[in-house]
Amino acid sequence: MIKISGLEKIYRTEEVETVALNDLSFEVKEGEFVAVMGPSGCGKSTLLNILGLLDDPDAGSFLFNGIEVAKFNERKRADMRKKNIGFVFQSFNLIDELTVFENVELPLMYAGVKKTERKARVDEVLEKVQIMHRRNHFPQQLSGGQQQRVAVARAVVNRPRLILADEPTGNLDSSNGNEVMQMLTDLNEAGTTIVMVTHSEHDARYSHRIIRMLDGHTVTENILV
């Protein structure tokens, strides 16, 4: 599903040049659950942004389902993103002004799904993440665990083939964290490819394979399953 080779990303300011990704290459197959680990500043998040088509690389190739997307323009990236990719963030990133239902509904609206279908799909996914009873609440009325469940529901409502999770349990206690990891595992077992950036060895153990990064490139790969 994902094949990157020779990926490079350099951040420049007036005084400093930081190499975030340095000749990075790896593959993720359809249906895989991959954890990316490494110390802060090793380029994990940059990688995730590029995989999520939120950012573009300075050099290298990025094939998504066999299509070269590294040089896609913003319009094509947005199109590819909304059809194929779901995101789960550490800080949930729910919109405070929208209810649980409306937050989850958002990707469907941008995808142009009709209202009746939207309602059915949002209800279904809210049911699945067991947050249906809070569907009309606003994010600030929920606990952290509940907010992350809503974020997961939003990430999967569009039935993406790939979910990118950036420290999904980083702001949660262990019990809520485990719940979220179990949800991701369930999604993966249902066929969704997952790439997760994490600092937690515990969370990484839910994955099939761990890619360890240092200074913008992979150092080791551990196959767990």
Binding site: G52, L54, E74, R75, A78, R81, K82, F87, N93, L94, I95, L106, P107, Y110, A111, R154, N158
Partner: peptide, 10 residues
Amino acid sequence: GVRKVAGARK
């Protein structure tokens, strides 16, 4: 950011 990630264009 969230809306863009969810597929909103400029």
